[in-house]
Structure formats: structure tokens, C-alpha cells
Amino acid sequence: MPTYGFQANIKDGQIEIPAEYKAVLHTPVKVFVITDWRAGSQKKREIPSLGVDMTGYKFDRQEANAR
């Protein structure tokens, strides 16, 4: 199965295929989308607060390492 790669923008939910590929991409295709996470388009994900009361809890690193 031949593979083609190109970068494209998504506009109104559609990916525009470059002109040089339109002639060869006329049959059903499989699409894999890889986002450029370095572009900053992704929202930062935060872990929600669990609301656990840690009052009176003492963390002992030595005891934890001994396990």
C-alpha cells in the first residue's frame, strides 16, 4: 500500500489535500492524524484536585524507600 505524507491545516473540519496528491488519492483512504504538539495548539492538561484531607499525615521517605 503506497504511503503519502504532507502537512495540512484543518478548516471547518476538512483537511485540504495538496494538488500534487489529488490525482493519486481518488480511492478510499485510511487517515492517520498526528498533531504537532510543539506548536502550542494543545491545551495544557491539569490533574483535577482529589479533595483528600491530608491533615495529620506524615510522609516518611525512609519508610517509603524501604518498601
Rank of each mutant, 00 (worst) to 15 (best):
V29A: 14
E16P: 02
I47W: 02
F6A: 00
I47C: 06
A66D: 14
E63W: 00
T3Y: 08
K30G: 11
L50Y: 12
E16H: 00
E16M: 07
E16F: 01
Q7A: 07
N9I: 03
F59E: 11
V24C: 05
D60E: 02
Q7E: 13
G56T: 07
R67M: 13
Q14H: 06
N65Y: 07
Y21I: 04
K30T: 13
R61Y: 10
F32N: 05
P28E: 04
R61C: 03
I47G: 02
K30W: 09
K11D: 14
D36T: 01
I15Q: 04
L50A: 13
G56W: 02
N9D: 14
A19F: 07
G13S: 12
L25K: 07
S49Q: 15
V24F: 06
Q42Y: 07
E63Q: 05
M1G: 05
K58H: 10
N65E: 15
S49M: 11
M54I: 08
H26I: 12
T35G: 05
D60Y: 03
E46V: 14
K43Y: 08
Q14M: 06
D60A: 03
E46P: 00
E20Y: 01
N9E: 14
D53F: 04
M54Q: 12
T3D: 06
N65T: 07
V31C: 14
W37N: 07
A64K: 10
G13H: 10
A23N: 05
I34A: 13
